[in-house]
Structures are given as C-alpha cells and as structure tokens.
C-alpha cells in the first residue's frame, strides 16, 4: 500500500462524498458529475487493489492483518458499484445522497486499511 496514494485517494473520496451529499440534499438527481465522482472513487479502489497485490513484491508488506485488509478492500470495491446501480434505477435526489454516503464510507474504510497496512504493528 503506497501511503501518499492512499491519502490522495482518501481526500478524493471525502471531497466526492461531500459533493454528492450536498448536491443530493439541495435536490439534484444523479448527474454525470456525481456519478463520475463515484466512478472515480471506484477506479482508484481498483488501482489500490492492484497496488496492494504488487506492493509486497517490492518489499512493501502490510504490518497488520492481510485478511482484514482485503475484507475492507473487497467490501469497499462493492459499495460504489451498488450505489451506482441504485442511482441508475432510482433517479431521485436521495440516490445522489446515497452516492455521497457511499463515498464517505469508502473513505472511512480507506483510513482503516491504511492503519492496518502502515500503522498497526501486530
């Protein structure tokens, strides 16, 4: 896990999440912007997955439990996809809020993943 990339990703997930929540609460239906923000979060998670697989080969190994790390990562990968489908099926303002809540949840999970990989010394 590359630390600067994770922090960048976390910042994007928080920013995208807040954007979607705010736009949803003022009544916007899912748009290219909010769907795009969620798609970007998902894309970065896929990059993260590739990085997590490759990093140990370069000597960057997790300090904590890999099982826990991958449980978080796989769950995080599923969230934007589920929310995106929801937004396509139900084109209402609440779907936009849900996109935002999803991005924020991913941010929390990234924070935990970073702790497991870089901080936790078990």
């Amino acid at each position: 896990m590359i630390e600067w990339f994770t922090w960048l990703q976390l910042a994007i997930a928080v920013a995208g999440g807040l954007l979607c929540v705010v736009l949803g609460l003022v009544g916007r239906k899912p748009t290219d912007l909010t769907m795009g923000a969620t798609a970007l979060v998902e894309l970065l998670l896929i990059v993260q997955l590739a990085a997590a697989i490759a990093a140990p080969l370069a000597g960057n190994t997790a300090t904590g439990s890999l099982l826990e790390f991958y449980t978080y990562l796989v769950s995080a990968l599923a969230l934007p996809v589920a929310a995106g489908f929801w937004a396509l099926v139900e084109r209402s303002r609440w779907s936009t809020v849900i996109l935002g809540v999803t991005c924020l949840s991913v941010a929390v999970m990234l924070y935990r993943m970073n702790q497991i990989w870089n901080v936790q010394g078990s």
Binding site: S65, L67, T71, L79, W94, I98
Partner: peptide, 27 residues
C-alpha cells in the same frame, strides 16, 4: 425519499458488521 437513505446506511452497516465478524471468526 429519505427511507432509501436509511436502507443504504443499514446496508453499509450490515456489510461492515459482516466483514468484521468474518475476519474475527476466521482469525
């Protein structure tokens, strides 16, 4: 309306709780 949001948050929490207990029980 907002009920959908409630369902979404419940879904996320269900996922979080399932993930955690999966890790705990396996480990």
């Amino acid at each position: 309306g907002i009920g959908r949001l409630l369902i979404a948050v419940y879904g996320v929490l269900a996922l979080a709780a399932t993930g955690r207990s999966f890790v705990q029980i396996v480990r």
